[in-house]
């Protein structure tokens, strides 16, 4: 895990604080989230306190601080999806899983992320679950999906 972060930081020798966002993006892309350990290392590299990095990272919606769940929901909140009720969808999903956007459920089964626009406006409202795309999602579709995921046998 840490080798990912090390490899990324190695590309940023002599970097200043304006490299913070690109580094955070790269680390998240590689590890799926920003771990405490990663933030500490980034702080050492850029000479920034962890509170500052956490502050910057939480300012943007794109960063998460827990590993993704087994089923990672990305809910599109672009304009078209918004018009087609993605807000309600998100609320429904959050309620049914007990997980807030940006967080992961305790059992590690679900995580939710909000994204700006997936570019699938014609198929709104759109979500993707662990990189699998679902068009025109309704609340009842969510219910159905959750039932399936919950009954999926534990794989080791």
């Amino acid at each position: 895990m840490t080798t990912n972060v090390d490899a990324i930081l190695a590309q940023y020798d002599g970097a200043q604080r304006d490299s913070l966002i690109p580094i955070l993006q790269q680390v998240q892309a590689a590890e799926g989230y920003l771990s405490q350990d990663a933030i500490v290392r980034i702080g050492e590299k850029l000479n920034l306190p962890t509170s500052k990095i956490y502050g910057v990272a939480t300012f943007y919606n794109q960063f998460r601080f827990q590993p993704q769940g087994k089923n990672h929901f990305m809910v599109c909140r672009g304009t078209a999806c918004h018009v087609k009720g993605s807000g309600k969808l998100l609320e429904k999903l959050s309620q049914a899983t007990g997980v807030e956007p940006g967080k992961t459920s305790r059992d590690g089964l679900f995580s939710i992320e909000v994204v700006a626009c997936m570019g699938a406006c014609a198929l709104a409202p759109a979500i993707s679950i662990s990189d699998h795309f679902y068009p025109k999602v309704t609340p009842s579709k969510i219910d159905q999906l959750l039932v399936e995921m919950r009954s999926e046998p534990e794989k080791n």
Partner: peptide, 19 residues
Amino acid sequence: SAIDFIRRGSKAAVGTAFD
């Protein structure tokens, strides 16, 4: 630097690293 602004909008607050 134990504390800084975290989050934004109506959720903005003063917090520590990892809140």
